[in-house]
């Protein structure tokens, strides 16, 4: 890999807190190495701002390995930026060249109020899980793990749905700010496993109801969620959830089908 360094112009959303209005501010950063991650570029900018006696830009991050789901930047019109199946923290600066301008915004959705700058409140996701995103198994009651064999392809499918990191990019990418990809990934993960089967209808109904309560929009099958999802969560999950949900509400399909 040839490494190079670059100067960039950043237009970043600044917002003091939930109550105030935000605006874009422009910053220049110099000598950014192509080996840096996108967030390391922000570290450089923030150190520069602190040295100048200004306030750094607040952004969420923790693992910087693409797994915790904390990082959340809307970069040049795309949730998590241009790389396919990649979180903001895993995006690297070799994507950019000297002189580029990059526009960075927070996730935008009514259900995700801005806390400060690029940081939003995603507790609505926790509440959707509270509504039913679990299997009711108390500690200590479990039977031997191998007593229920599960077909490998089903286990793999459940795993693929369970890979969701709860980042909210699907919501940010969706013109309706729908949380259907997130929700359906969880419902599918659990419904695909025999352990999760008994609760699957009630789970679907309760989670969807909570999603509506939180102010997420409804799904109109646009598919931008899937395109932005860093973990490749598939639209299949939404189709599966819809079947589950209709089955539960109208008494079709499901257990007796």
């Amino acid at each position: 890999m040839e490494h190079y360094s670059m100067n960039l112009t950043l237009k970043v959303w600044k917002q003091k807190n939930t109550k105030t209005k935000g605006h874009f501010e422009t910053f220049q950063v110099k000598n950014i190495s192509s080996e840096m991650s996108f967030l390391e570029m922000f570290d450089v900018l923030n150190e520069q701002l602190i040295a100048e006696g200004k306030e750094p830009i607040a952004f969420d991050h923790d693992c910087r390995e693409g797994i915790c789901g904390m990082c959340s930047m809307y970069i040049n019109g795309r949730a998590h930026g241009p790389w396919h199946h990649t979180t903001t923290c895993q995006l690297h600066m070799r994507e950019y060249k000297d002189g580029d301008t990059i526009v960075v915004e927070p996730w935008r959705a009514n259900a995700f109020p801005v806390i400060k700058d690029l940081v939003v409140d995603r507790q609505a996701f926790d509440r959707i899980i509270q509504a039913g995103g679990y299997i009711s198994a108390n500690t200590g009651n479990a039977v031997d793990a191998n007593s229920i064999p599960i077909e490998k392809h089903k286990a793999d499918e459940a795993f693929a749905a369970a890979a969701c990191i709860g980042c909210g990019a699907c919501v940010a990418a969706c013109p309706n700010a729908s949380a259907m990809l997130f929700l359906s990934a969880k419902a599918s993960h659990l419904a695909l496993l025999p352990q999760g089967d008994p609760e699957r209808k009630i789970r679907a109904v309760n989670m969807v109801e909570q999603m509506d309560k939180e102010g997420f929009g409804s799904c109109s099958n646009i598919g931008l969620c899937e395109a932005s999802c860093p973990k490749g969560i598939s639209l299949e999950n939404i189709a599966r959830l819809n079947r589950e949900y209709l089955g539960a509400v109208f008494g079709e399909g499901g257990d007796n089908a």
Binding site: I135, A145, A155, A162, Q195
Partner: peptide
């Protein structure tokens, strides 16, 4: 056992 009961999708063999 506990994790499997909760739905943790551990890797499996073809035999399930």
């Amino acid at each position: 056992d506990q994790c499997v009961a909760q739905g943790v999708p551990f890797a499996r063999e073809y035999g399930g």
